[in-house]
Design a protein around this nucleic acid. Structure first.
Length: 583
DNA sequence: TTCGGATGCGAAACATCTGCACACAGATG
């Protein structure tokens, strides 16, 4: 049985929880937790690292954890884990996942009341048994009950496509309050993560009270988690947690830096600040003397901008999307940060649908919408016949469509070039849904997986390789076919796919649809490292989806993408030159 | 536990707020 990276990461997460509950050394359980997080961001499956002997090159993987990964990859299980599991029941770990219950409380309930499941904990709380425990009380007992209820309501993480608009609406509402001066969305939304744990909002003001009141009284609040002088947290009925923090204008830079995270990034930044003689908190850089004591407040460096924070401790300003402690700090120290792509670099959109298949707008309407959004060129790429559910086009239909595309292109004049393409299905047997003599009549062809997505890894990989090697295929659309929190990515040897894409000069797509964001950022970074070309496309089926470009840009930036890596940042002339002479 | 620099061992651990208990656990980036 082959374990996925996610399954192995879950095992290490559980081991970390067990060790924490058992009161093991801080460093020990943190090592497991750190490795668990790192594994989730790896671009290859762990089997590949074991096979080519690079396992110990993964940061945080040493002798002990390396041996455990090897055992898991080779046998599908881990003796150490089985042993530890018998010492702390898994139900106790679930209890620790209740909001407001940590390792100490979980152990307390287990030791004193022999509680090893959430159901048992709920029953004990309802019978008033928890309140009698040392360190507990009636309020703590109620908090446990609230936490259990909340656990049922909260899904794991929220797709950024839902979280960002919700956050923006709350921010807009708070900025209506007269006392609110300035505001920003921080946290993982600002870092552009595909999924969001909670919403972090920052407001500058000299009077926090009205803002705190507005937060806990706003529409949609299911539960108040915290209601403090400068910080409040609420949980919404849709399960989303919202944290709002108010601070003075002079603290803005330090606060925004702090509240943007990631936690791992911040810890390292604060360590560097320490080395430079500062203690960094969310208010200021505070100089410390030789004994490590804070100097008086008159010496504090209040930073109105994040730039000041980074520059004062000798770093280039690091873009939020890069702040994951995945090497960006070391690169910033050397002044070698990449010049990340920005949304206005995009000149063309190479993947979009019309009423010919499952789109909602005509070719003309799509073209006009693209022109309004500053595009210089687009490719109309409706579905091919195998995508029956999407009204895919038969060969004669796609050829007939060409006349209308040419017509619209003429109508658009020099402002916008409208090209004719297709999103051709890669069929289950690896063949393409159109013959080459059809494909070669099209200007630009995207090939995508839509069916038979649960095939074994070798088959999927071979299907993608077939498409990449075809001289009439210019781009692979949404290469892993994932749907965030709905469908896992296909199993694929991404190394082989990217090496082939490099060799055959085929671009890989970053699909901007926030349900897809595919390639995901860790694969984007691998592609950049391998010199594979990318394209960033909306895959728009309607007007609203044309504005999803920013999600794709954030994903690209998370993968350290520069404009030069992306074929649709190029001028139309350069793009066409590449299309026709990829060789 | 990893890491570095050593071939056994020390260091790693930023900084704050909130709530509920009466000092600390839990949560946040």
């Amino acid at each position: 049985m082959i374990l996925t990276n996610k399954e192995i990461a879950d095992i290490f997460e559980n081991i970390a929880d067990i060790l924490e509950i058992q009161g093991e050394s801080h460093f020990k359980f943190l090592s497991y937790r750190r490795v668990s997080e790192i594994i989730l961001e790896l671009p290859r499956d762990l089997q590949a690292y074991v096979d080519d002997g690079t396992l110990l090159d993964i940061p945080g993987v040493g002798k002990a954890i390396g041996a455990k990964i090897t055992e898991l990859v080779e046998t599908g299980q881990l003796g150490y884990y089985e042993e530890r599991k018998s010492e702390v029941p898994l139900g106790v770990l679930n209890i620790k996942r209740i909001n407001g219950v940590g390792p100490k409380k979980a152990k307390l309930f287990w030791d004193e009341l022999n509680i090893t499941s959430i159901e048992a904990l709920k029953a004990a709380a309802e019978q008033g048994k928890l309140a009698a425990l040392a360190g507990m009380g009636k309020k703590s007992q109620q908090k446990v009950l609230d936490g259990i209820e909340s656990l049922a309501r909260r899904s794991e993480r929220t797709p950024i496509g839902k979280a960002l608009p919700a956050a923006q609406a709350i921010l807009d509402m708070l900025l209506e309050i007269p006392e609110a001066q300035e505001g920003a969305i921080a946290g993982s939304i600002r870092r552009g993560r595909a999924t969001i744990g909670d919403v972090d909002i920052l407001i500058s003001s000299d009077n926090a009270q009205p803002i705190m009141d507005a937060v806990v009284n706003m529409e949609g609040v299911a539960r108040i988690l915290g209601y403090g002088e400068t910080k409040s947290s609420v949980e919404l009925h849709n399960g989303l947690q919202v944290d709002v923090r108010v601070l003075a204008r002079k603290n803005w830079g330090a606060a925004l830096q702090y509240f943007t995270g990631s936690q791992a990034h911040n810890i390292k930044i604060r360590e560097i600040a320490r080395q430079k003689g500062y203690s960094l908190n969310e208010e200021a850089l505070r100089p410390i003397d030789a004994d490590g004591n804070l100097k008086p407040e008159s010496d504090y460096i209040f930073c109105e901008t994040e730039q000041e924070v980074y520059e004062t401790i000798g770093l280039q300003w690091i873009a939020p999307e890069m702040r994951e402690d995945s090497g960006e700090i070391e690169v910033a120290q050397k002044n070698e940060l990449p010049n990340l792509i920005i949304i206005s670099d995009i000149q063309g959109d190479l993947h979009m649908h019309t009423t010919y298949s499952d789109g909602k707008l005509s070719i003309r309407e799509m073209a006009e919408a693209a022109r309004e959004r500053g595009m210089k060129y687009i490719v109309i790429t409706d579905h091919s016949q195998a995508s029956v559910q999407a009204g895919g086009l038969k060969p004669e239909e796609i050829l007939a469509q060409q006349a209308e595309v040419r017509q619209v292109n003429d109508a658009m004049g020099d402002d916008l070039q409208v090209l004719h393409g297709v999103e051709v299905d890669i069929k289950a047997d690896g063949s393409l849904d159109y013959d080459d003599d059809i494909l070669k009549q099209l200007d630009f062809v995207v090939a995508s997986l839509h069916i038979s997505l649960r095939q074994e890894k070798e088959k999927i990989t071979q299907r993608l390789l077939n498409a990449i090697q075809n001289p009439y295929i210019h781009c692979i659309g949404h290469p892993t076919a994932r749907l965030i929190s709905k469908r896992d990515p296909v199993l694929v040897d991404m190394d082989a796919v990217m090496d082939a894409a490099k060799q055959h000069n085929t671009a890989l797509e970053i699909n901007c649809n926030p349900e897809r964001l595919d390639l995901d950022s860790q694969y984007v970074r691998l592609a950049i490292q391998k010199g594979v070309l990318l394209s960033i496309n909306t895959d728009a089926h309607n007007l609203r989806m044309m504005d999803y470009r920013s999600y794709g840009i954030m994903t690209a930036r998370r993968g350290w993408t520069e404009a030069k890596h992306v074929i649709n940042t190029w001028s139309y002339a350069k793009f066409i030159e590449w299309v026709n002479h990829r060789g």
